[in-house]
Design a binder for these strands. Structure first.
Length: 597
RNA sequence: GCCCCUAUAGUUUAAUGGAUAAAACGAGAGGCUUCUAUCCUUUUGAUGUGGGUUCGAUUCCUACUAGGGGCACCA
């Protein structure tokens, strides 16, 4: 509803600006920073004062007078104030109408059509096939899935995709580690051909009662150690890669088995997180295809061949980027080579309008080079390709400094483990306070733990580096997902205890009371979502929810809602619309609500 | 050497070029016979440094300082 008000205002202001001589006005209406400045304001008077050679304050006054004469029914007042802002004050009726419009919009409230009928392919969380998902992966996943949900809310059709780099030395190390360290008895030889005939002599994750992803990363660490310490192992691992490339049957069999553990492990964590890929690319399926693009590029003059046979880009002149090799002098391809092929594959398979890569900032140059090369080859326009980088996740060490996670030192913090720790804290509290039936505690705590952990990562800007501190993440007070969840539960509880809600029974107040601030906050949700969509970042939504919840709790403490008065139904409408807003906001963050806690 | 990112209360974080820089944690004071106190009210306290653009700069430009990342046959 607020959106309609703003559209009308924008139209009128734009019209007025054209009349006073602005050729192509851009009208920005933003939320006022303080209640005393109304609900919304515009800076057009200051913005166009110079162009019109007028005093901004006079211009603002003229605009305010013009709008007053229009007598727009949703406006209680329009004022012009120093140094040239024009402030808009909505009528109580207009605000109440907005509250009711939230209820009729339901789970669509906040959505818009800014990217309607566009097709987006968003790549995120391409995990190493040799590592269990740690808090770094968790962050990427939350950022990526957040963008996926935002673009869906913007009306776009979205394909979320991921890549498994399932070939090469890393996976071979896991394969070796498995043969050498996952035998049931020491006497079993570390030999792939023996394994092929006696698989039952090796354990599976299921038999060893280890989560498959953890099983794989532990196996990798063991294989890696042997690889670095023993030249014979190194040779043997490298031979596996060669055998794999030569399509050796037994090697492929072991490779498939190890990968099945990897996929099972990741799928388990993805399910827990509520994360999902619509499409998974496997490197082994497309890694050879890049070479054709290199030959094509050579023909078109996009690339050039060096004396030693390697092929290099020509990006310096047109793009100001440093050049890089796309084909090695031994004729084999590189990451960039594969990415070219995959980009074309994505674009043609899904007829994608926009492609997004959620990958680390260290790949910034690589991404720019990829985009430029794809443009040169006619695969697509650079503007349609977006790299979304993010800040690193390190650990907070005892002295307060930042430390890198290291699998060698055993300091890697797994996503699973963090969620489990928070979950334990919550269950303990349930037990201490004897809350919930014992058999329900587990399920409720799981949802709350997910909410707490996800919210903790996602409430801040994605470029902000994080020094993770488990103590801090277990703390569920303050600016946390549980605070938001608690507020939602509170609202649900009130609704449950009420005699039922009926829109017909809502008396529109002629003046707002204690609920004014809360109702004001409800006006801004759509705007916040729109901004999140523009920025490809859900953290604005998280910050907004904290504010909304704070307003709600403030009101709750001051005023009794179920008071049997003639305002009760009106107050219930507010409670209900707050609940809808929280639920929609949390849904954008990938957090599902519960009704009791 | 060149390029990119980051710098905000004691701590962890907010702020499409706008009005008095916003929260949480910590520390101090107060509040449950109550619709769930995982809450509410209140006090305390910050834009790395120097220039510039602008009516207005945490935000843009520039030079420093500090930290991180990248720079052709690695992934």
């Amino acid at each position: 509803m607020v959106r309609e008000y703003l559209q009308q205002l924008e139209f009128q202001i734009s019209d007025w600006l054209k009349n006073v001589g602005v050729s192509s006005p851009v009208v920005l209406i933003e939320r006022s920073v303080d209640v005393k400045f109304g609900e919304f304001s515009t800076n057009v008077a200051m913005r166009y004062a110079k162009e019109l050679k007028k005093n901004p304050q006079d211009l603002a006054s003229d605009l305010a007078d013009f709008l007053k004469e229009k007598r727009l029914d949703f406006l209680a007042d329009v004022t012009a104030v120093q140094p040239g802002f024009v402030n808009f004050y909505l009528t109580p009726e207009a605000k109440t109408k907005h509250v009711l419009s939230i209820l009729s919009a339901g789970n669509k409230f906040g959505n818009n059509e800014s990217h309607k009928s566009e097709k987006w392919v968003i790549e995120h969380t391409s995990p190493n096939p040799n590592k269990a998902m740690h808090i770094g992966h968790l962050r990427i996943n939350l950022i990526g899935m957040g963008i996926v949900r935002l673009m869906k809310a913007a009306g776009a059709e979205v394909v979320a995709d991921g890549i498994y780099n399932d070939r090469g030395i890393s996976i071979a190390k896991v394969m070796y580690g498995y043969l050498a360290h996952r035998k049931k008895t020491e006497s079993t030889p570390t030999d792939i051909h023996y394994w092929a005939l006696h698989k039952e002599e090796w354990v599976t994750p299921l038999e060893s009662d280890i989560k498959p992803d953890v099983f794989v990363s532990d196996t990798y660490v063991l294989g890696e150690q042997d690889f670095s310490n023993d030249e014979r192992v190194e040779k043997s691992v490298r031979q596996m890669v060669v055998d794999w490339e030569a399509n050796d049957e037994v090697t492929w069999e072991l490779w498939r088995q190890i990968l099945s553990y990897v996929y099972e492990g990741n799928e388990r964590v993805f399910q827990r997180l509520g994360s999902h890929w619509d499409k998974v690319w496997y490197e082994h399926e497309h890694y050879q295809k890049g070479k054709d693009y290199v030959l094509d590029g050579l023909e078109k003059g996009v690339f050039k061949k060096l004396e030693d046979g390697a092929v290099i880009t020509k990006l310096e002149d047109d793009y100001g980027l440093s050049d890089t090799v796309v084909l090695k002098n031994d004729g084999t391809s590189l990451y960039l080579t594969q990415d070219i092929a995959l980009t074309d594959l994505k674009k043609t398979t899904y007829k994608a309008d926009k492609l997004v890569w959620v990958v680390g900032p260290e790949q910034s140059l690589h991404m720019k080079q990829l985009f430029a090369v794809c443009e040169q080859l006619g695969i697509g326009n650079r503007e349609d390709f977006t790299h979304v980088p993010y800040g690193k996740v390190g650990l907070k060490s005892a002295d307060g400094s930042s430390a890198k996670m290291s699998s060698r030192d055993g300091t890697v913090v797994l996503a699973d483990d963090v969620i489990d720790e928070v979950k334990e804290t919550i269950i303990k509290r349930f037990e201490d306070e004897e809350r919930h039936q014992p058999e329900n505690r587990e399920e409720i705590a799981e949802k709350l733990a997910l909410a707490a952990v996800k919210f903790g990562f996602i409430k801040m800007d994605k470029m902000q580096d994080i020094d993770f501190d488990i103590e801090h993440s277990i703390d569920v007070h303050g600016d946390s997902g549980l605070y938001v969840m608690y507020t939602f539960v509170r609202a649900q509880s009130i609704l449950r205890k009420s005699a039922g809600f009926d829109v017909e029974g809502v008396n529109q107040p002629s003046e707002l009371g204690e609920e004014a601030e809360l109702v004001r906050s409800l006006l801004y949700f759509e705007d916040v979502v729109a901004k999140s969509i523009d920025d490809l970042s859900v953290h604005h939504v998280a910050q907004y929810l904290l504010q909304l919840c704070s307003d709600f709790n403030g009101w709750y403490a001051q005023e009794s809602i179920l008071d049997g008065s003639e305002r009760e139904m009106y107050k219930l409408a507010i409670v209900k619309s707050v609940a809808v807003t929280i639920q929609n906001g949390l849904a954008l963050l990938g957090i599902s609500t519960i009704d009791e806690m």
